[in-house]
Amino acid sequence: MRVFPVYAPKLIVKHARIFLTGVIWVKDLGRLEFEKGRFLLPRKSLPKVKQAILELNELIEAQN
């Protein structure tokens, strides 16, 4: 598990694309899981977490 002390979308996306499957922890967002290079949306999450995951997945799609 990698810990990101700040929310840096480009760096987080780079990590997810390299490792494809895993878990990261982002300060103020908490634990985020990714599989096959995409972030998974938890069943229950705060609106800011949901927005961050959608933003990260959009960045991943834009890079493909």
Rank of each mutant, 00 (worst) to 15 (best):
L11D: 12
M1D: 15
K27I: 15
L32E: 00
K10A: 14
I24H: 00
V3Y: 15
N64A: 12
I18W: 10
R17W: 06
P47W: 08
N57G: 02
A16G: 02
A52D: 00
L32P: 01
R17K: 13
K50F: 07
I24L: 07
L29D: 01
I24R: 00
E61D: 13
R31S: 04
L54R: 14
P42G: 09
V13Y: 03
K48T: 07
K48P: 07
E35W: 08
V23R: 13
V23M: 09
F19I: 14
L59D: 03
F4N: 01
Q63T: 13
I60Y: 07
K44C: 07
G30K: 02
Q51I: 10
K48V: 07
A52R: 08
P5Q: 15
N57A: 02
Q51C: 08
V6F: 13
K14T: 10
A16E: 00
P42Q: 06
Q51E: 09
K10G: 14
V49H: 05
K36H: 14
H15L: 04
W25M: 10
N64M: 11
K44T: 09
I53L: 05
M1H: 15
N64R: 03
L59V: 08
I53E: 00
I60C: 05
I24N: 00
K44H: 09
A52H: 05
N57C: 02
L40K: 11
L32V: 06
R2H: 15
M1Q: 15
K10Q: 13
P9V: 04
M1V: 15
K27P: 14
F19H: 11
V26Q: 01
L46Q: 12
I53C: 06
M1N: 15
A62V: 11
K48S: 09
V3K: 11
Q51V: 07
P5W: 15
S45I: 11
L54V: 09
G37S: 06
R38T: 10
Y7K: 01
L32S: 01
G22E: 01
V49K: 11
V49S: 04
V3T: 07
R43H: 09
L29F: 10
W25Y: 13
L46H: 13
V49R: 05
P47T: 12
R43P: 05
L20N: 13
K44E: 07
V26C: 04
L40Y: 06
E35V: 12
Q51S: 11
K50Y: 08
A8F: 08
I24P: 00
K50T: 08
R17Y: 08
H15M: 04
P9E: 04
V6G: 04
Q51D: 08
P47F: 05
L59G: 04
F4P: 01
G30C: 02
L41R: 09
I60N: 04
E35S: 08
E35I: 10
E58S: 13
F4A: 00
L56V: 03
A52I: 09
V13G: 04
R43V: 10
H15E: 04
E61H: 10
P9R: 04
W25E: 13
W25A: 04
L40M: 09
V6E: 06
F19E: 15
L20D: 14
A16N: 01
V6I: 13
H15F: 06
R43G: 08
L46G: 13
S45H: 13
I12Q: 01
R38Q: 11
I12H: 02
F34R: 00
V6N: 07
N57L: 01
L20C: 07
W25K: 06
L54K: 13
L59Q: 06
L54T: 11
K44V: 07
L40E: 04
T21M: 11
V23E: 15
R31M: 08
I12G: 00
V6H: 11
A52L: 06
F34G: 01
L20Y: 10
V6Q: 09
I53W: 03
I53Y: 04
K10S: 14
G22K: 02
R31P: 04
Q51H: 13
F34I: 05
P9K: 05
E35T: 12
A16I: 13
L11T: 06
F39P: 02
I60E: 03
R38C: 06
V3E: 14
N64E: 14
L56S: 00
H15A: 04
K50H: 10
P5K: 06
M1T: 15
P42Y: 08
R2I: 15
P47M: 11
Q63L: 12
E33K: 15
V49P: 03
L20H: 10
E61P: 04
R38I: 10
N64I: 12
R43I: 08
S45K: 08
I24Q: 00
E35R: 11
L59S: 04
H15I: 04
I12M: 05
N64Y: 05
F39Y: 04
K48Q: 08
V23S: 07
R38N: 06
Y7Q: 02
K44Y: 10
P42V: 04
F39A: 01
I12C: 02
L54Y: 11
I24W: 00
K50E: 06
A8N: 09
N57S: 02
M1C: 13
E61A: 10
K10R: 08
V13S: 09
L40V: 11
F39K: 00
E55M: 07
V26S: 02
N57I: 02
K44D: 07
A8W: 11
G22Y: 02
V6D: 06
L54C: 08
V3A: 04
L54N: 08
E55V: 07
G22S: 03
N57Y: 01
H15G: 01
A16L: 07
E58G: 14
L59A: 05
A8P: 01
